[in-house]
């Protein structure tokens, strides 16, 4: 008798727990889904060709986000252009050359900490370091983003350098190859996937960054080429979203930008997965 009531109790407890778990997963999923659908429903009707292909004008009282799109592209290009050689170079040095393992550990730890710092702090530092010297401009923003993304690029490259088997290095050294030749011909080709993954992650971060850029890159919507653009203040899509929503009350435009950013994020994640799968397949060959 006692046993039966115990097992009944257990059973109902099991059912209860299952329902609780189901509830939490349902809530999580529906929140995400709601956010996605809400933004898309609010945003997509406001995306027009005119919005995408013009600049804002006070004369015609029309809003266009072409300058913001271009600014985003410029800042992504400038940031990657600077952060890639720095991050990959640092990673190669730390994994292949550095002999003081303690120092390497400290640097890795610092890099990890650096990537967890709230971005507004980067903005503050960037403003004092770059904007105060070169003026508020996209380049100052890009330099700030370089500092921000350096740890990401460095760590992902390092991790994939570590996956290159030691036996490849030994084989190459055994043939009389010098250090740099070993790195260039045997080690680097094995870590391309890490570099690309790091790049994609960084692009995602740059697209989503607003706090650091509010301080450093400014709010302008002028239409510029890449060189002039980098020297002038300008808003990226996320900053423009903030400006249109908070200061001009243009929620239609803000949601249109939000929808664009969201679609881009999904695309970037998708590409990142594809790239990882592609290289995993190539490696297992």
């Amino acid at each position: 008798m006692l046993n039966r009531s115990l097992s009944k109790k257990r059973k109902s407890f099991e059912v209860l727990m299952k329902i609780l778990m189901l509830l939490s997963v349902g809530l999580t999923a529906s929140l995400v889904l709601f956010l996605l659908v809400y933004v898309l429903v609010q945003g997509i009707p406001n995306i027009t060709w005119e919005l995408l292909s013009t600049k804002p004008s006070y004369l015609t009282e029309k809003i266009g986000i072409l300058p913001d799109i271009l600014n985003t592209v410029y800042i992504v290009i400038a940031t990657l252009f600077l952060v890639l050689p720095l991050g990959v170079g640092a990673a190669i040095y730390l994994t292949e050359y550095a002999s003081n393992k303690k120092m390497v550990g400290i640097i890795e730890y610092a890099a990890e900490t650096l990537s967890g710092i709230p971005s507004i702090i980067y903005g503050l530092v960037g403003m004092l370091l770059f904007s105060n010297n070169m003026g508020t401009c996209l380049m100052a923003g890009a330099l700030t983003l370089v500092i921000m993304n350096l740890p990401t690029i460095m760590r992902t490259t390092q991790e994939s350098l570590k996956t290159v088997p030691q036996s490849y290095r030994e084989g190459a050294f055994g043939l009389g190859a010098g250090k740099w030749r070993v790195v260039r011909t045997v080690v680097l080709p094995g870590c391309v996937d890490g570099v690309i993954t790091g790049c994609i992650l960084s692009v995602g971060r740059i697209l989503g960054e607003s706090a650091a850029l509010l301080f450093t890159a400014g709010f302008a919507h002028a239409l510029n080429g890449i060189i002039d653009g980098l020297a002038a203040p300008g808003a990226t899509l996320t900053v423009a979203l903030y400006v249109y929503a908070k200061e001009q009350g243009e929620f239609g435009v803000a949601f249109a930008i939000a929808a664009i950013l969201m679609v881009l994020t999904v695309l970037i994640n998708f590409v990142a997965t594809l790239v990882q799968k592609y290289f995993a397949k190539r490696r297992s060959l």
Partner: peptide, 27 residues
């Protein structure tokens, strides 16, 4: 590097580079 060219080495586990047969030998 010259010494290792004169005295070659073959390892316990086969360790060809992940490249073509030709490029391995030509390395």
């Amino acid at each position: 590097n010259h010494l290792r060219k004169e005295i070659g080495m073959v390892f316990q586990k086969p360790n060809p580079f992940p490249m073509s047969i030709y490029d391995n030998v030509a390395y």
